[in-house]
């Protein structure tokens, strides 16, 4: 009896040793077709910004005759890793990813590298992982543009107060935080003081509440910068509800150029926003993907971080009609 157990254990052990494999190692899935298959994993399709990005990426890919596979991370880092790895398992030739959590890119890139799949990151951030390239909006530069505009507009409004406020995104959005950092650096250079820097957790409801608190504490605040448009437009609404004007009294600036911001700017309900161009960024990632597949060396704006910048643009009443 004992020997039977020992034999079974030995056999089991041998099977186990033989069967040990690493999920980060290449599996034998090859997509047999000649058509290039691009996998696109996106942060969350319920946001306008990413809907535009997906459209731009898809159109550029199909224009090249590529097959396009979409994966929605639904704002979940677990889904991000699982889904992106699944795309690689399904045999995509190149992966484009707009990561919900840049710091979770590691396992994805590990698997991609094992299969020789290039990875292009679209916006948000790179998490320090060895992607092939990242297309990034100049977040800090955008914050700077906002500050320059705000300083100018405050002067035009004839306000003497040197106090401004800054509403940040949720604490875990470390790359979006660069917007507020860029804003703060430039506005302080222009001689202003950021008297309140509070988090609206990236939500419109909280941006509204936070702005009301800011107004109560600093009734003389001359301008407020918000890390995204939902909060920016909400803050502008709070300003209006307090009887002030979001352009002429308190210069409210958002970020993203979401449709609600564009509508608000046209109606003088928001002073300005900073436009990224997610569709163009998507197209740019496809271009980079093509180059990576052809093994052409890529040119970077910031070679150390393999960053390719997509310029941002300040949108205010003057140029709002140029926005698509």
């Amino acid at each position: 009896m004992k020997s039977k157990i020992l034999v079974s254990l030995a056999v089991a052990g041998a099977l186990v040793m033989a069967g040990c494999s690493d999920s980060n190692a290449p599996s034998d899935n090859q997509s047999g077709s000649d058509k290039v298959v691009v996998g696109f994993s996106v942060y969350d399709m319920q946001y306008e910004f990413f809907q535009k990005m997906e459209k731009g990426t898809r159109e550029a890919a199909t224009a090249k005759g590529w097959e396009f596979k979409l994966h929605d991370e639904k704002s979940d880092e677990n889904e991000m890793v699982t889904g992106a790895q699944a795309l690689i398992d399904q045999g995509v030739d190149v992966l484009i990813i707009s990561p919900f959590k840049p710091s979770a890119l590691g396992p994805i890139i590990a698997k991609a590298k094992a299969k020789g799949v290039p990875v292009i990151v679209d916006d948000i951030g790179g998490g320090g992982a060895p992607y092939d390239a990242i297309v990034i909006s100049d977040n800090a530069g955008g914050g700077k543009l906002a500050a320059e505009y705000m300083a100018k507009q405050i002067a035009a409004n004839g306000k003497t107060s040197k106090n401004v406020a800054s509403i940040t995104c949720e604490p875990s959005a470390v790359y979006a935080a660069r917007r507020n950092a860029g804003f703060k650096a430039e506005i302080e250079k222009q001689g202003f003081k950021v008297v309140a820097e509070l988090s609206g957790n990236s939500k419109a409801e909280e941006g509204y509440k936070v702005m009301k608190d800011i107004l109560a504490k600093n009734p003389d605040v001359a301008g407020v910068f918000s890390c995204n448009d939902p909060m920016g437009v909400a803050a502008a609404n709070a300003v209006k509800d307090a009887g002030k004007d979001p352009v002429k009294d308190i210069v409210t600036v958002g970020f993203n150029a979401d449709p609600e911001a564009i509508t608000a700017i046209k109606a003088n309900g928001l002073a300005a926003t900073v436009a990224q161009d997610p569709a163009a960024m998507g197209a740019l990632t496809v271009k980079l993907a093509d180059q990576a597949l052809a093994k052409t060396p890529l040119t970077f704006d910031n070679a150390a971080e393999r960053e390719v910048y997509n310029p941002v643009q300040l949108i205010s009443k003057e140029n709002v009609d140029t926005v698509k």
Partner: peptide
């Protein structure tokens, strides 16, 4: 009330 404050409705409010 929330839509009144924000002058909009969308699928992400109220979480």
């Amino acid at each position: 009330l929330i839509s009144s404050q924000l002058q909009k409705g969308n699928g992400q409010l109220g979480m």
